[in-house]
Design a protein around this nucleic acid. Structure first.
Lengths: 137, 137
DNA sequence: GATAAAATTAAAGCTAACTTGAAGGTCAAG
DNA sequence: CTTGACCTTCAAGTTAGCTTTAATTTTATC
C-alpha cells in the first residue's frame, strides 16, 4: 500500500505519517522499486493505535515508548507500568475537571441569581470577589 | 508593587506577566517615575483568575474575552454564554476521559490475565488485536 | 506525448504560551 | 563609586505536532 492509500484509510495526512516515521513511531517503511514507501496492512492498525493513544492523552514520545519498532518486544511489566501511570494521570485530570466544572457552575449560579435591581458594576465586583475567593485552592 | 514582587506573590514569571500585558489580558500597568511597572493589589487577584481560568482549560484568548480591561463592563449574557460553553466543553472532555480510562483499564486487564504459558509474541498480538478492535469508535 | 495526480526530500512555517538573550537604565548597599 | 539585584524593550528561541513549500521524479490518463 502506498502512503496515499494509507492516509485515506486512516484519515491521516500523508505528511503526518512521514512525520511519525521521522519521529520513530513508525518503523521505516520498505520501499518499492521506485522509491515509494510500501506499507503492509498492519500499518493501518498501528496508525489507529497511535491516533487512539493520542486521544487518550499520550504524547508522541510516550506512544513511542508504547510501540517499540518490534511489536513482539513489548515488555509486559513496562507496558503495564505505563498504562497504570496513564490511568493515574487521567484520574488527576478527572478531579481537576470536576472541580473546574463545579466552579464554573457556581459562577453561573451567582451571576444568574443577581437581583434584577443590582447594577452591573456591583454584580461584576461580586463575581470578581467570588473568583478571588474560591478559584484558588 | 513592582513586577518582581507581583511575580513572587503569584508564582508567575515576570516575563509571563509582561507577556499577558502584551496580549491584552492585563491592562497596561501604570509606571513609576523611573519607568518601572507599578501594580495595585488587585493585580494579584486578576493574575489568580487568569491562572485558574487556564487550569480550567481556557485559552489566553478566551480569558481575554472573560476579562475585559474594565471589570465593570462585563456583559452579563456574554459572560454566561462563555461559561456555559466551557461547561459543555468540560463535559465532552469528561466523557472522553472516562472512555479512555475504561479503555486503558481494559487493556491492563487483558494483559494481566495473560495465561502464564502464553509467549510474549502471542500476547503482544492479542493486545494489538484488542487495540485494533476496540480503540476506535 | 502531454498533463495531471501522486510520490520523494529537506527545509521552513505555524500556533500556543512562554522563556531567553542582548543591551542597557535604576537603585540600595558597602 | 562600584557591584549586583531588579527593571526596561525588543527580538529571537523553545516545544509539540504537524503542514506547507519547493524542487524533482514517477505513474497514470487522455
Amino acid at each position: 500500500m502506498k502512503i496515499g492509500e494509507l492516509a485515506k484509510r486512516t484519515g491521516m495526512a500523508a505528511s503526518a505519517i512521514r512525520f511519525y516515521e521521522a519521529r520513530g513511531l513508525l518503523k521505516v517503511a520498505s520501499r518499492q522499486a521506485n522509491g515509494y514507501r510500501d506499507y503492509p496492512e498492519d500499518a493501518v492498525a498501528i496508525l489507529a493505535i497511535i491516533s487512539d493513544a493520542q486521544q487518550a492523552g499520550f504524547t508522541l514520545d510516550e506512544i513511542k515508548q508504547l510501540l517499540p519498532a518490534d511489536v513482539s518486544s513489548w515488555q509486559h511489566d513496562e507496558l503495564i507500568g505505563i498504562l497504570r501511570r496513564k490511568v493515574a494521570d487521567i484520574e488527576v485530570l478527572q478531579t481537576r475537571l470536576a472541580q473546574n466544572k463545579a466552579h464554573i457552575q457556581h459562577l453561573i449560579q451567582l451571576i444568574e441569581s443577581k437581583p434584577e435591581d443590582m447594577d452591573c458594576q456591583l454584580n461584576a465586583s461580586r463575581v470578581m470577589a467570588t473568583l478571588g475567593l474560591h478559584l484558588e485552592p
